[in-house]
Simulated scan of single mutants.
Amino acid sequence: MAKKTIMLVCSAGMSTSLLVSKMQKAAVARDYDADIFAIASSEVDNKLAEKNVDVVLLGPQVRFLKDDFAKKTAPKGIALDVINMADYGMMNGEKVLDQAVSLMK
Rank of each mutant, 00 (worst) to 15 (best):
residue 1 M to E: 06
residue 2 A to G: 10
residue 3 K to A: 08
residue 6 I to M: 03
residue 6 I to E: 01
residue 7 M to T: 00
residue 10 C to P: 00
residue 10 C to T: 05
residue 12 A to F: 03
residue 12 A to E: 10
residue 13 G to Q: 05
residue 13 G to V: 03
residue 13 G to P: 05
residue 13 G to Y: 07
residue 14 M to E: 09
residue 15 S to H: 04
residue 16 T to Y: 00
residue 16 T to R: 03
residue 17 S to H: 06
residue 18 L to T: 07
residue 18 L to A: 13
residue 20 V to G: 06
residue 20 V to K: 04
residue 22 K to E: 11
residue 23 M to N: 01
residue 23 M to W: 03
residue 25 K to W: 14
residue 26 A to W: 01
residue 26 A to V: 12
residue 31 D to T: 12
residue 31 D to E: 15
residue 31 D to Q: 14
residue 31 D to L: 12
residue 32 Y to M: 07
residue 33 D to S: 14
residue 33 D to Y: 09
residue 35 D to S: 15
residue 35 D to Q: 15
residue 35 D to C: 08
residue 36 I to T: 02
residue 36 I to H: 00
residue 37 F to L: 13
residue 38 A to T: 11
residue 38 A to D: 10
residue 40 A to Q: 09
residue 41 S to H: 09
residue 41 S to R: 15
residue 42 S to H: 10
residue 42 S to L: 10
residue 44 V to W: 00
residue 44 V to P: 00
residue 44 V to F: 03
residue 45 D to I: 14
residue 45 D to P: 08
residue 45 D to L: 12
residue 48 L to T: 07
residue 49 A to V: 13
residue 52 N to T: 13
residue 53 V to Y: 02
residue 54 D to P: 09
residue 55 V to G: 01
residue 57 L to Y: 01
residue 58 L to P: 08
residue 58 L to A: 07
residue 61 Q to C: 11
residue 62 V to K: 03
residue 63 R to W: 09
residue 63 R to Y: 07
residue 63 R to H: 06
residue 64 F to I: 06
residue 64 F to E: 11
residue 65 L to K: 14
residue 66 K to P: 04
residue 67 D to P: 13
residue 68 D to K: 14
residue 69 F to K: 04
residue 71 K to C: 12
residue 71 K to D: 15
residue 72 K to C: 06
residue 72 K to E: 10
residue 76 K to F: 08
residue 76 K to W: 04
residue 77 G to N: 14
residue 78 I to G: 01
residue 78 I to E: 01
residue 79 A to K: 03
residue 79 A to P: 02
residue 79 A to V: 09
residue 79 A to F: 01
residue 80 L to G: 02
residue 80 L to P: 01
residue 82 V to C: 06
residue 82 V to W: 07
residue 83 I to S: 00
residue 84 N to W: 08
residue 85 M to L: 14
residue 85 M to P: 06
residue 86 A to P: 05
residue 87 D to M: 11
residue 91 M to K: 09
residue 92 N to R: 07
residue 92 N to C: 08
residue 94 E to G: 14
residue 98 D to Q: 10
residue 98 D to G: 11
residue 98 D to F: 07
residue 100 A to S: 15
residue 100 A to Q: 08
residue 101 V to T: 10
residue 101 V to Q: 13
residue 101 V to D: 10
residue 103 L to F: 09
residue 103 L to R: 08
residue 104 M to S: 07
residue 105 K to I: 07
